[in-house]
């Protein structure tokens, strides 16, 4: 969707800035929890520190989606379906492998990367389907 994306540059920049800030808070909270001795309440507060940034990202994504035309919404919907289902299947398969004690604990960073990659694949599939 090159045309609309170009028009939405300020929104994209804001989204990227919030995403960077949320990621920085996420990494910071993870490091604090790993390296600093804290009581139970401060640990919970630090663990939940990334939440406002993540909620802001959801709100910005919803705002961007609502500005799209109906065709673009369809394409993104199909991409979300591919991302959601393929990530779900992958996590379930990983869970079964964990039960079989073949693999270790799940890294949630990989889950996010998989979701993004499958979203991109789903987007390409949807675009080529309607071309």
């Amino acid at each position: 969707m090159p045309e609309l994306h170009r028009k939405q540059n300020p929104s994209r920049i804001l989204f990227l800035l919030v995403a960077l800030l949320a990621t920085a808070i996420d990494i910071g909270a993870f490091r604090v929890l790993a390296r600093v001795e804290l009581g139970p309440t401060p640990r919970i507060l630090v663990a939940l520190a990334p939440l406002p940034g993540d909620i802001a990202l959801i709100w910005l994504a919803l705002r961007a989606i609502r500005k799209l035309d109906e065709f673009q919404k369809r394409v993104h919907f199909e991409a979300v379906v591919v991302a959601f289902l393929s990530t779900g299947v992958a996590v379930f398969v990983y869970g079964y492998l964990q039960k079989a004690e073949v693999v270790g604990p799940l890294n949630f960073g990989i889950v996010w990367a998989l979701m993004l990659a499958s979203y991109a694949v789903g987007y390409r599939i949807a675009v080529s389907h309607y071309q």
Partner: peptide, 19 residues
């Protein structure tokens, strides 16, 4: 009509039925 060019292409080619 206030949509993306992609939308026009998809409708015009009969690949997408508009609401």
């Amino acid at each position: 009509i206030g949509v993306s060019r992609q939308a026009v292409i998809a409708v015009e080619n009969g690949k997408y039925d508009p609401a």
